[in-house]
Design a protein around this nucleic acid. Structure first.
Length: 573
RNA sequence: GGGCAGGUGGCCUAGUCUGGAUAUGGCAGCAGCCUCCUAAGCUGCAGGCCGGGGGUUCGAAUCCCCUCCUGCCCGCCA
């Protein structure tokens, strides 16, 4: 495989600087290279100052003097203690464009690593519709999964369905016992919205009526005693709720490969087996009333309580115990396990890792945390009804996009406008969510979520549509990679951006910094818009085919970026 | 009380892990640009004690200590 020109350039710079230092009488001096705005590659000389007993400025000047540009290096200069190198633009232009045209949709896809990655995300309790407070989870998880696929991993996305415990039992009790007409049915015809009304009412009734409380407690007791009928009843209710959640997720282009049910780990005895194994651990202990716990003080767990309880007094398992069984299950199917979790799970995740270690599991899940989205008036709550549902956000975004299209396009069919509006509205939402680094606190504002200008999803889609439109008008053309025809500063800048796609994918996937991807997409789109405004393409004469090649390469990269972001690529808008 | 995370122009945000050149980009504001490939665009202007204080360093948004503000956690809940 041909070495990336950037890497080759870097190697040449390192060799040149090394040789210059040797010539100056300082072989084996350590130095680094860094990318910067001032040059294609720079070598800061500050660290060498002590060893060479010279001010950095003088070192830089001296080294620069001793380097004669050759190969990919076309320029060397010293400034403020840096040696700045410029790279042969012609080689970069030709190599980048050829690479993109040749690989097409596979440009930026790395060779298979032969490793399986499991990405668990979303996993919201099936007790109500997905609200914006939790919407970061599917968007981050799905984007990460898409990036990891491009990084060469075999990826499985997975939703862990919590069909065990009080919350789902309350929901099930409500759906079963509250008469149909007595709750305010939501106008939206989706199972999750229909069912949440019963959940709210059941919670309220339980608080107010001891008899209801007793019925629910009884149901919970039966559930925990392993009563098959109750368990299956609860699971069926959760399934109905989940259907609605799946619909919402599909609405933002999220589909998961696998759904794993918590109750299965009780049914197949694996949670039980974990309990038995943990009991034999040196860290295990038993409370006076019989509850088992691990003392995790030795694992760096801090706070007023370092105990991690894994059975109740009556011996039944807890959520955390089942989660341990679930993680062992995931590790049996994957090399790397990633959990996308809300920040409230931080301690739990740490305890889980310690417990896995005690169980002798060498691998640990890699958690990825995000802060909850709140409203300007405070945090969201399904039970209190202080909430913006993701479905409502989608509807609003799509409707806004529709108005925009309608106001600027008279030639598009109604059906087409609806479809494009959906693509744009959904794109705006996904982009707006991933562009912010996950651990940052996020206050939901309609004006930001529905922003279609500047650093937004539609901005990328708009540029994509532009490239499509130009190529449509151009018709067939012969690709031209001749770098001597692409010399405008905006053309060069655009090629530079395009050449960085692989690096952007790696940072987003490998380092799990998914917010780097929208930033990269924006950089490419902005570079294209500048090029578009400054340079004619269709009427370019001599350079027409070269510029069309550049447009096609931009289209390809943008389509790949959009696909990683889970956004659609409208050919017109 | 303890722990974890965040604090960067009016608002949102990159950079912090791995210290270096004039701190990234956007929104809102102001001024320009459609007889030409989609103006969801482009150009320019204005706007910053990088929460505060100490320290380390030739050099700190970045590392260390202290402190303030915000969020989250410290269940025999899930």
């Amino acid at each position: 495989m041909k070495m990336k020109v950037q890497n080759q350039f870097r190697d040449e710079v390192i060799t040149a600087v090394g040789n210059a230092l040797a010539k100056m009488g300082f072989p084996d001096t350590q130095f680094i290279t860094e990318v910067s705005d001032m040059a294609d590659l720079a070598v800061p000389c500050f660290t060498m100052s002590k060893g060479l007993r010279m001010p950095p400025k003088d070192i830089a000047a001296k080294i620069a003097e001793n380097i004669v540009p050759s190969g990919l290096i076309t320029g060397v200069s010293a400034l403020n203690g840096y040696i700045n190198f410029t790279m042969d633009q012609n080689v970069l232009v030709e190599a980048t464009l050829c690479d993109i045209i040749e690989k097409g949709d596979d440009y930026g896809t790395l060779p298979s690593k032969g490793k399986k990655v499991n990405v668990e995300h979303t996993s919201t309790n099936p007790t109500g519709p997905i609200h914006v407070g939790r919407a970061r989870n599917p968007v981050i998880g799905d984007t990460l999964a898409r990036c990891l696929k491009r990084c060469g991993y075999e990826v499985c996305t997975e939703y862990y369905v919590n069909d065990v415990g009080k919350q789902v039992v309350i929901l099930t009790w409500g759906v079963t016992n509250i008469p149909k007409g007595s709750v305010q049915e939501e106008e939206r015809d989706k199972t999750d919205h229909k069912l949440v009304a019963y959940y709210r009412k059941a919670n309220k009734m339980m608080e107010e009526d001891p008899a209801v409380q007793e019925q629910i407690a009884e149901m919970l007791r039966k559930f925990e005693a392993g009563d098959k009928e109750t368990i299956s009843h609860v699971r069926k209710t959760a399934e109905v709720m989940l259907d609605g959640l799946k619909e919402t997720l599909a609405g933002i282009n999220v589909t998961l490969d696998r759904y794993t049910w918590e109750s299965d780990f009780i049914a197949d005895g694996s949670a039980r087996a974990i309990v038995e194994k943990l009991k034999t651990s040196e860290y295990a202990g038993q409370a006076d009333d019989g509850a088992w716990y691990l003392d995790l003080k030795a694992f760096g767990v801090q706070g007023k309580n370092t105990k991690f309880t894994f059975t109740r007094a009556d011996g039944t398992t807890l959520y955390t115990t089942r989660d341990l069984a679930y993680h062992l299950n995931k590790f049996s199917r994957s090399d790397i396990v990633i959990d996308v979790l809300g920040e409230d799970q931080k301690l739990g995740s740490k305890q889980l890792c310690s417990a896995l270690e005690i169980l002798g599991c060498e691998k640990k899940p890699e958690p990825m945390f995000y802060s909850f989205v709140s409203l300007p008036e405070g945090k969201m709550s399904t039970r209190k009804g202080v909430v913006v549902y993701l479905d409502d956000l989608i509807d609003e975004a799509v409707s806004r996009a529709y108005d925009e299209i309608k106001s600027r396009r008279s030639d598009m069919s109604e059906e087409k406008m609806r479809e494009v509006a959906r693509q744009i509205g959904v794109g705006a939402i996904r982009y707006n969510i991933v562009r912010v680094s996950p651990e940052k606190q996020f206050v939901f504002k309609w004006e930001d979520a529905l922003n279609f200008d500047g650093n937004s999803g539609p901005y990328l889609q708009y540029v994509y549509a532009r490239t499509c439109s130009m190529l449509r008008k151009a018709g067939d053309f012969e690709p031209d990679y001749d770098p001597s025809k692409l010399t405008d500063e905006f053309e060069i800048k655009l090629v530079h951006s395009l050449s960085r796609f692989e690096a952007a994918i790696q940072v987003s996937g490998e380092q799990k910094r998914v917010n780097m991807l929208p930033a990269y997409g924006h950089e490419v789109a902005a570079a294209f818009n500048q090029f578009y405004a400054a340079v004619p393409v269709l009427a370019a004469g001599e350079s027409r085919n070269s510029r069309l090649t550049l447009v096609e390469c931009t289209r390809t990269v943008l389509r790949n970026v959009l696909s990683c972001l889970g956004m659609e690529a409208p050919e017109e808008m």
